[in-house]
């Protein structure tokens, strides 16, 4: 899966709290959470709006978990029946990250949107399993596999 040239806006998804400047000053080697949004029209299927893929990179901890949630939520109202969260670039994932994903999952379910998590490394799947949410948030090992999965019948 490659980005469609010129159509993939890059968004820094640090939280934009009201009047709250972030105090963090990234040092050498720091891995702030960042988000790349991929609209790939080639994945569109007739009669079924095309999925959107959100690629996250960095660390998801108590500082950045709100940014994960706020990076996902705006994309749950855009008419995409499937929202793919590519967390392959996430190098740390803590309990706050699980809570952020569960919040997003609740919102998605209410809107009959399928949230599909992708990770090709063990970090995120291990945490989701350990937190007993592996059934609610199954993890695919590639974006292609997540997109290829047929949409489940509306529950």
């Amino acid at each position: 899966m490659t980005n469609v040239s010129g159509r993939a806006p890059v968004t820094n998804c640090r939280p934009r709290g009201p009047g709250r400047p972030r105090p963090r000053t990234p040092g050498p080697g720091e891995e702030q959470l960042s988000l790349t949004v991929e609209h790939d029209a080639r994945t569109a299927r007739p009669g079924d709006g095309h999925p959107i893929v959100l690629h996250f990179h960095g660390e998801v901890d108590m500082v950045s978990a709100p940014a994960l949630r706020q990076g996902i939520l705006p994309h749950l109202g855009g008419g995409h029946p499937v929202v793919v969260l590519d967390l392959s670039g996430v190098t740390f994932f803590g309990a706050r990250g699980v809570s952020a994903l569960m919040t997003a999952q609740d919102t998605a379910e209410h809107q009959h949107i399928e949230l599909r998590v992708v990770s090709n490394r063990s970090t995120v799947p291990r945490v989701l399993r350990a937190a007993d949410v592996g059934d609610v948030l199954p993890v695919y090992d590639s974006v292609a596999a997540a997109i290829a999965e047929p949409r489940h019948p509306t529950r």
Binding site: P15, R22, A65
Partner: peptide, 12 residues
């Protein structure tokens, strides 16, 4: 909202 008790202590 869970998880929102972070980053609020400015200037610590």
């Amino acid at each position: 909202m869970i998880g929102d008790d972070t980053g609020t202590r400015q200037g610590t």
